[in-house]
Design a protein around this nucleic acid. Structure first.
Lengths: 232, 232
DNA sequence: CGAATGGATACTGTATACACGAATGATTTG
DNA sequence: CAAATCATTCGTGTATACAGTATCCATTCG
């Protein structure tokens, strides 16, 4: 959806510009490491440098743009170590999200969750990436809505954006697993089993990242081996 | 520490200005809800509106300033519900921090941790608030350093700033408990017991907030009653 | 022929200016 | 006297301008 040089009559320009740039980064139009010159972007969008500048600052706060003191902005490039850091934090917070959702346990919103899950079952390996990511986002946002923690929501959204580019290549191959894991989380939320929901959500992130869940408890209580994607 | 009208020869002004405003907010000079007009601040600091504007945007991203579209900036005022949200998230992430620290278990940095702990034992109810908070910050930053997750670090720091004003009134009365809880966390980190360290750190936040730890597992494994500040 | 140095260029940091919208107070009218 | 309306003022949103610095390329020296 084009918006007509953007310079016309819209609401707070910095927001519009930020959304535009964010979208282009997540779509891969701007590659990681690519420099984002204020004047170039402002000319391209038909606005002055100021809204662009503020948008870049905002994106920097979100983590998808890096701002070096006298060198300007560039698309953040994550090292393997930083990717692991992102995943660790996101896994933990998605776990909290699911735990809170299971504790609140709002039947009305859970119905919405199941609706999204049902829609997700129709998605196949041949669906286009945008639709896959769309459904994924919907699911996580629905869990968020049930958890009802706005602070958590903002942080997790930022983390999701930052990991989106990293997970994207693997997301198509993991459609089936993804759906199954979502379903398991929903079941745990419905049954009100907060701990299970949290555990599954945390693992879900590690699985999506195809990364071992090193932060997990050594499971002192129950069996340890081969438990990945057990439990429903 | 004055810095001489600020307008002279410093590094990136927006950062200097942001630090200045943040400090004044955390010191209580600007009350929650108070409006922060760009021009007023810029005149006060001897710089133009632009650096102030950018500083306010940055502080908004940190959460301690709220920015309404055509109304400008004000010191964020948190409702009780939002305070609970902040505490939930911070407790979870401080837990992750401690878990990671226990897993890494770097002897050199642990020595630093014990040094800070020792310094903390000298603090009494009659110490001034700044020193109390200083030691507290030192401790948490040392744990951060061991955990070595920069993403986590940034998020948790923001959360600490946001909760600082809320915890402040109770912090003097809790000096002894605080120190004991810190000591218990350190012991767990030293012994490499990641789960215990995480659990204690999480509880530590809830205790500091004087808030029940509702998000905690129902402890299916072990005993439940009267466990607050046991294990040490 | 390679490395260092100098200048030209491009871009950011900051200041100033103007336009639009919101808030406030006075004035007028019922 | 109360309420509504209008004018004024204050403050943000955006644009433009200028200064300082980093980057890049050409030139020169070893």
């Amino acid at each position: 959806m084009k918006v007509g040089t953007l310079g016309s009559r819209h609401a707070p320009l910095n927001k519009v510009v930020a959304d535009s740039i964010r979208e282009r980064i997540l779509a891969g139009e701007f590659a990681p490491g690519e420099r984002l010159a204020e004047e170039k972007l402002s000319a391209e969008l038909g606005v002055s440098r100021m809204p662009v500048r503020e948008a870049l600052r905002a994106l920097c706060a979100e983590g998808i743009v890096t701002l070096e003191p006298r060198r300007g902005a560039s698309v953040t490039v994550y090292t393997d170590a930083q990717v692991r850091e992102l995943v660790e934090v996101r896994a933990t917070l998605e776990g909290l999200n699911a735990r809170l959702a299971a504790r609140r346990h709002d039947p009305k919103q859970i119905a919405e969750l199941e609706r999204i899950l049902a829609a997700g079952s129709k998605i196949t390996e041949r669906s286009d990436l945008a639709r896959i990511q769309e459904n994924n986002a919907r699911f996580h946002e629905a869990v968020e809505a049930i958890a009802a923690n706005s602070v958590l929501m903002n942080i997790v959204r930022s983390l999701r954006d930052r990991t989106a580019l990293i997970f994207a290549p693997q997301s198509r191959a993991r459609i089936r697993e993804n759906w199954e894991e979502h379903a398991a989380i929903v079941r745990a939320v419905i049954s009100g089993d907060a701990e299970l929901a949290g555990l599954l959500a945390t693992r879900h992130v590690y699985n999506a990242a195809q990364m071992p869940d090193a932060a997990e408890p050594a499971a002192p209580t129950a069996a340890k081996p081969g438990m990945k994607r057990a439990a429903a």
